[in-house]
């Protein structure tokens, strides 16, 4: 549990950080995943650049009908932000499910998203919110949709030299209801399955539904088959149950000692139904 020797820089500015990262340094944010790996000597970066202290990455603000959340914002800040609780409760609700209070005080939104652990919580919410992920390098910035960002197990659209700098979420009218339902791994606290739903009911039928899934397989994804089954449909218990049953269709589900693939798929459909019910009940 003793890391290899490494160099550590706490840069004064984002530009300085990006310059060091372009030169091969590894970005460090909350360190909730990287530091344990380093202590086991499974990861041995030579140079760490600490992003968590950069003010330039530490903000939550509303601009032009969008919420902008800096990458260095901690899970606890996401969970407790009055702005997010009011205008994007799904993200706050999701953050509250992460790890424990110590992890939420240290871990950051950007760090978690960039790490792309397939059982982390945010990806489900970001998929359901159709969030934008701003990637920045010394050469400039670009925005990628959540759907295109999460590619595979620990694999994202990040290119070498790029960091996640911001999450952008459109502000929606109060008609939309959201919910994140998670089955927690009894040991790790990661999502065995985690389902985020954003939905709207108008005139008795589902007028909008987005379903983000995490934990079930090697990467988070949008369950578009579930969405299609409910779009424009009266959300009866039966209809929701049938749609939720599609969530794991043709998915190569993960397995560990806590949950086999078969059980995970079953849980995914149960939690999808729960999340849809909860989201619709919050759709005014």
């Amino acid at each position: 549990m003793i890391a290899n020797a490494f160099e550590y820089t706490a840069p004064q500015s984002l530009d300085e950080a990006l310059g060091l990262i372009a030169g091969g340094a590894k970005p460090l944010s909350g360190g909730m995943s990287l530091i344990p790996m380093m202590k086991l000597r499974l990861a041995a970066p030579e140079h760490l650049v600490d992003l968590a202290r950069l003010k330039e990455l530490n903000y939550i603000r509303e601009e032009n009908g969008e919420l902008h959340i800096g990458a260095a914002v901690t899970h606890y800040e996401v969970e407790s932000s009055p702005l997010l609780l009011g205008k994007c409760p799904l993200l706050a609700e999701t953050a509250a499910h992460i790890g424990d209070i110590q992890v939420r005080n240290m871990g950051t939104l950007g760090g978690s998203v960039a790490h792309a652990d397939p059982a982390s919580d945010y990806p489900a919410a970001l998929q359901a919110l159709e969030a934008g992920i701003v990637l920045r390098s010394a050469g400039g910035a670009r925005t990628v949709s959540a759907k295109d960002f999460f590619i595979d197990t620990f694999t994202t659209a990040l290119e070498p030299g790029e960091i996640v700098s911001e999450i952008v979420v459109p502000v929606e009218p109060g008609l939309t209801g959201t919910s994140y339902q998670k089955c927690k791994h009894q040991a790790s606290g990661f999502a065995v399955v985690g389902i985020a739903v954003r939905a709207r009911r108008e005139n008795g039928v589902v007028s909008l539904i987005r379903v983000g899934v995490t934990g079930l397989s090697g990467s988070s994804y949008r369950a578009e088959n579930v969405e299609a089954a409910l779009q424009g449909v009266e959300p009866t218990g039966e209809a929701i149950r049938a749609a939720a049953g599609l969530v794991a269709h043709s998915v190569d589900a993960s397995a560990d000692m806590q949950a086999s693939s078969e059980y995970r798929k079953h849980l995914a459909s149960v939690y999808t139904a729960k999340a849809i019910h909860a989201a619709l009940s919050r759709s005014a």
């Binding site: 086991l40 694999t155 990661f190 090697g218 190569d252 806590q258």
Partner: peptide, 20 residues
């Protein structure tokens, strides 16, 4: 070995991804 300390879940996911 030490690698086993990352947890069962990671090993399963990694194996799946490598095969894929």
């Amino acid at each position: 070995g030490t690698m086993a300390a990352v947890g069962n879940r990671m090993i399963d996911m990694t194996a799946r991804m490598l095969i894929k």
